[in-house]
């Protein structure tokens, strides 16, 4: 089984992306397109295996909102790491639709991109070919603090400072 990073660990991936449901085992974990999801929702709903949907960065989270309760996984495919639309998709899924399943970044994903992506709500990462997964884990640790509210830390730094949760010794 292919490997990915999930919850900051290297794990194997049981999902398979399928173009159609013909001949797909009932217990297989599958990823389908938003079109298949909408068209065959009744069938998909009755399956035993887990269900994921594959989004392009140009797809709108609004289009899958109605199905989120039945989804275990949303994959967002990055054609280029600097396509920031995927970052908004993840934040909207988490913060507006309160999706608690896995949100997976795929495509042009590597060590340098993990910090921002994870703060936007991605918790799984399929790295592009040739990237060492264990090495990439350090990408989560590059920064120990961040100013903004994010999915990972819903309270912005200024609120946490005020609550006295973190020190703030003045520097000379």
């Amino acid at each position: 089984m292919p490997e990915l990073i999930r919850n900051r660990r290297v794990e194997s991936d049981s999902y398979e992306k399928v173009e159609s449901l013909d001949g797909v085992s009932d217990i297989a974990d599958i990823i389908v397109s938003p079109t298949t999801l909408a068209a065959q929702y009744r069938i998909l709903e009755g399956r035993t295996g887990r269900l994921g949907v594959w989004m392009e960065t140009s797809d709108a989270p609004e289009t899958i909102a109605a199905y989120l309760a039945q989804l275990d996984l949303v994959v967002v495919y990055f054609p280029a790491f600097a396509d920031g639309r995927g970052h908004s998709i993840a934040r909207l899924l988490r913060e507006q639709y309160h999706f608690e399943g896995e949100i997976r970044a795929a495509g042009d994903v590597f060590k340098e991109t993990l910090f921002y992506l994870s703060r936007c709500g991605f918790d799984a990462f399929v790295l592009r070919p040739g990237e060492a997964l264990e090495d990439a884990l350090a990408g989560f640790e590059t920064f120990s603090e961040a100013y903004q509210a994010s999915v990972e830390r819903p309270s912005p730094l200024f609120r946490r400072r005020l609550m006295g949760k973190i020190g703030s010794e003045p520097l000379s």
């Binding site: 920031g84 921002y116 936007c120």
Partner: peptide, 14 residues
């Protein structure tokens, strides 16, 4: 400045 520094959602705008 603080809000925009390493803003995770807006690091890769158009």
């Amino acid at each position: 400045r603080q809000w925009s520094t390493f803003h995770p959602e807006f690091a890769f705008l158009p």
